[in-house]
Structures are given as structure tokens and as C-alpha cells.
Design a binder for these strands. Structure first.
Length: 528
RNA sequence: GUUGCCAUCGUCUAGAGGCCUAGGACACCGGGUUUUCAUCCCGGCAACAUGAGUUCGAAUCUCAUUGGCAAUGCCA
């Protein structure tokens, strides 16, 4: 059977790296096994879903090269009739019921099945017992068992779950007297009669669990007495995520569901939904969350981790793709910088991490720098040219020959295209002087040497890096500045900063006139 | 509260009982590449959450504790 996986975002804002990482892993898995990668837009939240969000999502996926099969994607809103039909089917089968649970009107609830022969992975584990808080009466009905548990320090805690969780339920009071025996009233309860049992302090029942094998986390188990019936259609008639999600996965023939850790609890309900709809549940794999510097999973409110932001900051899509692939996964052979093809080749869900991973911007910037360095010179120049034209005032029109030279000189120093903002001084009359750097550099005896430099430069017979260096050395000697110690002051005066390419080459590129002009300007602005 | 999941250097990770006095990468510190920055090279710092057990032997297995996260919605 062909593997079919999907990425199912809800277009209610920007996509953050947690979401897109799930998309990347799905994509990688599909491409690795030669399966299909599907896109489904879960736009059922009509209030918050926007066209813009869908557009940015598509744009970001395209930018990252996350091509999906079966275009156009499936829009969840288009599936409404199928969702409702599924709810009808469940209702007709007795697997769902209507109830005015929240007092807002009648909703449809999926009933955790009492008979579980249809559901894979359900096993009886044996007798269980729960201590109850006596202030809240125990209620038993076809909609579930409800009670307050006796928590630490005699406090009451919320308890209860679906009726299916409590086979052979018996309730006792503090003396041990049997107050209620579900087996004796089973038909009445399942027929719709409610029972209230005040004064119960202890219940016993046969515990059953549902388990499945998670591709990344291993065998997962949850007791049925911790699962409540779930609303699948709201009082206003709109289907809820659980229903829509499962029905769409059936429609799209999804075989493997790879998603974030936060969905593990839902999985048990979804498996039962699949089973009650007559389908074999797909395979599940739950990815660890990506957390921020505070250790919290990224949310739409984090602002900083939107995928689109990395693009506008000048990061390379292949670097982001590579970096995100390594959050929660590693090939195990020490490789870290891998091409998309290598990643597809090496990727397996079995090697996914189980614990959450924190994004480290520094490491990402470093990796991006590696990718930047590797761009061939001509291509780099074209991309850089485009970048400055689109992002900076000074970049729209500039000396093209000079730009080519600057690229050659500065390429290795650019970790992201965003770093190109520092190239500004090459293309404008005066640099933006960094006050702190200048204050540090402009001190005697360097200042005097600096003042003498313009004249010296004017008279240089040749203008090249070697002659400039000689001139600096000369002036240094004349004013008692140690050899080489004039370089940084000169850099500050000419470029405004303390960092950059070799100062002689930089000055050569800038040209004699501008160097002289800037040296004089610096002397004026920062009289020592 | 309850249930579930997770736990190796600051961060991402390697590690599936002896190959581990725990390896790599980023960051950091020091040095070198004709004294900035970047690149490159060399060196250094730095971790198995804690406690019991199983075993001849445990980062690896078991249990407990602690901590983190998640779920517990008519959000998705």
C-alpha cells in the first residue's frame, strides 16, 4: 500500500516553525518511502481563518520546497456534508447521541463504545478501585459516570469518564455496603435511565485500556475510564475538529498521521472514531514539540518564530529546512549539513527524538552562513543585488561595478542576506558612525596620525591596497603609533564601524576621494 | 488534582549492557592563519536529574523521587 501522509494546518495566522517542522517531517517521510504528501487546509474556524493566512501558508511551503501531491489541496469546509453524514451514521449505529451538555443547545457526542470488539487495541487489565469524595454524589448514565475523586489532603478532584470505562461498576459507602451494581442495572442505564448514588466513597470496576503503537514514541496506553465522550457536532450544527479530522483522513486515504505531541491524547479517541466508522485506523507518529528559549512550545503568539520572518530576515530556505530537520531528528552518523536529497535518503521516523527540542538561533545562523558561503560567486552577486534592491533605499540604484567588487570582498562575511545591511557605507557618501567604536578608536596619538592621513593619501602616486598600507605605516611611524595600530582607527573613520574586510582593500574599493572625505569628516565629528 | 509523555555538555545531538576516563556540532575561552570581523586550522571548557535495584559490569534494563511538558474545551 502506498504511504499517504498529510499536513493539515488551520489558516488562522502565520505558520510558526513548530507547524512547519511537522510539515517537513511529513514531507521527508513521504519522499523517503516514495509515498504521497497531501495538504489539507483546516479552515473550519470561519471566524479566524483568512485568505491571507492561506496565501502565506502556500507561499511559505513553496519557499521551503514543500511540494505537495494532489493540487489543489483539500479545503476542510468543502467536506461539511461528509462530516455530517458521518455523524448521522454514528447516531444511527448508536455510537453517538444528542445531549444539551453545556446548556447551549443540543450537540452530538461520540460515545466511547461499550462493546469494543470493533476497536483495535482494547484490552481488559483487571479490577480497579477509586476513592470518591463523598460531597459529590456519584451519577451513572449512558452519557457517562461522574464523580469527584478523593485527592490529596482530603480535597475533591474532578473525576469521571464515559460509561464504557466502567465495566462491572460497583459503588460502596464508607461501611463497605454495596450501594449500586451496574451489572444489575445495565439495561436500564444503557436504555437511558440515570442513577444518582449519594454517599458513595469507593467504586470498583474492571479496567480496560486502549493501546496503539506510536511510530516514534512506542506503545501508548490509556485507560478507558480516563476518556470522556466527545462532542463531534456543535449545537449550531458545525462539526468539531475530531470528527472533521478523522473523516477527512478517511477521505484522503491517509495511512500515516505524523503530527505534534500535543495530539497524543486525541489519538485514542480518533482510533475509536475510525473503528466505529468502519475503518482501520492509520499509523500514528507523534513528534516532540519545538520549544522556545523559555522551554515553552511555540504558539501563534510568540511572534518571533513565524516562518515568513526567516525569509524577510534573509535566511536561506535550504538552511532552514536543514536546520528544522535536525530538531528532533538526527541521522546518527554525525552529519549535520545535509542536502534535501541526503535528508530524504536518511530520514526515518524511528530515529525521531522523543523529548522536545529548543531552537538555537546562533546555531541556525551559523548553518545559514555555511550555505551562504557555498553560493557560487555569480549567483551570490545576483541574489545579493536583488536583496539590496528590494530591502534598502541605497540598494535601488548603485554603482554596479563597485557592487560586484563589494560582493567579492564581503561574501564570506555574510551569514544571512540580512547582513548586507552593513554594506550601506560602500554606496552612500558618509557612513553611519558607531559612536562607541569611534570614541574607543579616536585617541592620541592615533588622532593626530589620522589628521595627517588625508594629505598623505592625496599624494599617493598609486591607489591600491599595498600603497595604502605603506601610507598608513608611514604615518604611524611619523606620529609614534605602533605598527598596525592605526588600522582600526582608520577603519572607524572610513567605515564608521570596527568590523569589516581588510582595511586596505576596503579603502581601495571606496576610492581615494571618499576616504579623504571621510577621514576629514571623522576628524570634524570626533575632535579628540 | 488526575492521566499521559519526556529527561546525556548552555543548545542540537551520538549512544540500544562492556567499544564511554561518554563522541560530534553550535556557542564560549585560548592560540595560529603577515595583529579588526569573517573564513580556515589547532587546543581547551563543558553533560548521563536524584536515589535504590538487576548484573561480573548500566548513560543504556526495572522501580521510586524530582523536574519539564501535554491533555483534561461545543479550540484546532
Amino acid at each position: 500500500m502506498t504511504v499517504r501522509v498529510r499536513f493539515a494546518p488551520s489558516p488562522t495566522g502565520q505558520v510558526h516553525i513548530g507547524n512547519i517542522r511537522a510539515a517537513i517531517f511529513n514531507w521527508l517521510y513521504a519522499r523517503h518511502v516514495g509515498g504521497q504528501f497531501l495538504l489539507r487546509i483546516e479552515d473550519t474556524d470561519l471566524v479566524r481563518s483568512t485568505k491571507e493566512a492561506i496565501d502565506t501558508l502556500l507561499e511559505v511551503m513553496d519557499w521551503l520546497g514543500l511540494n505537495f501531491d494532489e493540487n489543489p489541496p483539500l479545503y476542510q469546509t468543502s467536506q461539511l456534508p461528509k462530516h455530517l453524514a458521518a455523524a448521522e451514521q454514528l447516531l444511527a449505529q448508536g455510537d453517538a447521541y444528542k445531549d444539551n451538555k453545556g446548556g447551549q443547545g443540543e450537540a452530538v457526542l461520540f460515545r466511547i463504545p461499550w462493546e469494543t470488539a470493533r476497536v483495535p487495541g482494547v484490552t481488559e487489565v483487571g479490577p480497579a478501585e477509586i476513592a470518591l469524595h463523598p460531597d459529590t454524589p456519584l451519577t451513572i448514565s449512558n452519557r457517562g459516570v461522574d464523580f469527584a475523586i478523593l485527592a490529596g489532603k482530603g480535597k475533591a478532584g474532578p473525576g469521571g469518564a464515559s460509561l464504557a470505562g466502567f465495566h462491572n461498576l460497583k459503588a460502596f459507602d464508607v461501611q463497605g455496603t454495596l450501594l449500586f451494581d451496574l451489572d444489575a442495572h445495565l439495561n436500564e442505564v444503557r436504555g437511558g435511565q440515570d442513577f444518582t448514588v449519594p454517599g458513595a466513597t469507593r467504586i470498583t470496576f474492571t479496567r480496560r485500556t486502549i493501546s496503539y503503537d506510536d511510530i516514534v514514541k512506542g506503545r501508548m496506553t490509556k485507560p478507558l475510564d480516563s476518556i470522556k465522550d466527545v462532542v463531534i457536532v456543535r449545537h449550531d450544527g458545525s462539526p468539531v475538529f475530531h470528527l472533521a479530522n478523522v473523516v477527512d483522513d478517511i477521505t484522503q486515504g491517509v495511512t500515516h498521521i505524523i503530527r505534534g505531541d500535543d495530539h497524543v491524547e486525541n489519538t485514542f479517541k480518533h482510533i475509536m472514531l475510525f473503528a466505529c466508522l468502519g475503518q482501520t485506523p492509520p499509523q500514528y507518529g507523534h513528534l516532540p514539540m519545538i520549544v522556545n528559549a523559555q522551554g515553552k512550545p511555540y504558539s501563534k503568539r510568540d511572534g518571533d518564530a513565524f516562518v515568513g520572518d526567516f525569509r524577510t530576515k534573509g535566511f536561506l530556505p535550504e538552511a532552514l529546512f536543514n536546520y528544522l530537520s535536525f530538531l528532533g531528528w538526527a541521522p546518527g552518523d554525525g552529519r549535520e549539513k545535509m542536502t534535501r536529497e541526503e535528508l530524504v535518503e536518511a530520514f526515518t521516523l524511528e530515529r525521531c527524538q522523543r523529548g522536545s527540542a529548543q531552537m538555537d538561533m546562533t546555531k541556525f545562523i551559523n548553518l545559514n552562513g555555511l550555505y551562504m558561503a557555498e553560493i557560487p560567486e555569480t549567483e551570490f552577486r545576483e541574489r545579493a543585488r536583488k536583496w539590496v534592491a528590494e530591502n534598502y533605499d541605497w540598494g535601488r540604484e548603485l554603482d554596479e561595478a563597485l557592487f560586484t567588487e563589494v560582493c567579492l570582498l564581503m561574501h564570506s562575511r555574510a551569514k544571512t542576506f540580512g547582513d548586507l545591511a552593513q554594506w550601506k557605507h560602500f554606496f552612500v557618501a558618509l557612513p553611519d558612525y558607531d559612536e562607541k567604536v569611534c570614541a574607543k578608536q579616536f585617541k592620541a596619538p592615533a588622532t593626530d596620525a589620522l589628521k595627517a592621513l588625508p594629505e598623505r593619501l592625496q599624494n599617493l602616486p598609486e591607489w591600491n591596497a599595498a600603497s595604502i598600507e605603506a601610507a598608513l605605516l608611514d604615518v604611524s611611524a611619523a606620529y609614534g603609533v605602533a605598527s598596525g595600530k592605526l588600522n582600526q582607527p582608520a577603519r572607524a573613520a572610513v567605515t564608521g564601524t570596527g568590523i569589516g574586510a581588510g582595511i586596505f582593500e576596503t579603502m581601495q574599493l571606496l576610492g581615494r576621494e571618499r576616504c579623504v572625505q571621510r577621514l576629514q569628516e571623522a576628524a570634524k565629528r570626533f575632535p579628540a
